[in-house]
């Protein structure tokens, strides 16, 4: 954790500098007759962020914050594994949305999580993976009139059937 604390502070300091550079593309000073320039607000806030990371580093050096005193790893092997499985699953879920549609990706993600991570029975997995996307479909597309991504063209015949039910 101790190493992680200073690395995080370092990354955040770099990020603050990046934000300052980005903000400085607009005027960051006071323009007479116009008030503060468009970049002033984010620029000075990012500057405060940079100063904060300085204080965080100083507290790290003095070992006053809890993470800077801890010798535990940021993620142990179990934590690392579960983080990769879950975050990776989410990454896959979101990546699949543009290919097999929001509802299709949802079903795949539910099968992955409930069956492979949760080790529940296939029956329960399939009930959830089929019923939930359909329920979401009718709620969003039917009731709320919000269209979710439909993925590539091959999903069309399937959605035509569902739309026939709504309209």
């Amino acid at each position: 954790m101790r190493l992680g604390e200073i690395v995080t502070a370092g990354i955040l300091a770099l990020f603050s500098i990046f934000l300052m550079v980005e903000s400085a593309k607009l005027d960051v000073g006071y323009i007479t007759g116009e008030g503060p320039g468009g970049g002033a607000w984010p620029f000075w806030l990012s500057a405060i962020m940079l100063i904060c990371t300085g204080f965080i580093a100083y507290n790290w050096y003095r070992k006053t914050s809890p993470p800077s005193q801890s010798s535990e790893p940021v993620l142990d092997s179990y934590g690392m594994k579960s983080f990769l499985y879950v975050a990776g699953g989410l990454l896959g879920f979101i990546a699949l949305i543009d290919i097999i549609s929001m509802y299709g990706a949802m079903a795949v993600f539910l099968v992955y999580y409930v069956r492979f991570l949760g080790r529940h029975s296939w029956l329960l997995t399939l009930i959830l993976a089929i019923a939930l996307p359909i329920a979401f479909f009718f709620f969003f597309e039917g009731l709320m009139r919000i269209t979710m991504p439909k993925g590539l063209e091959f999903t069309e015949p399937f959605y035509n059937i569902l739309y026939d039910i709504i309209y």
Binding site: F109, Y113, V114, L124, L132
Partner: peptide, 8 residues
């Protein structure tokens, strides 16, 4: 393990 995927 059911609640978590639902939340996601």
């Amino acid at each position: 393990t059911i609640l978590a995927p639902l939340i996601f």
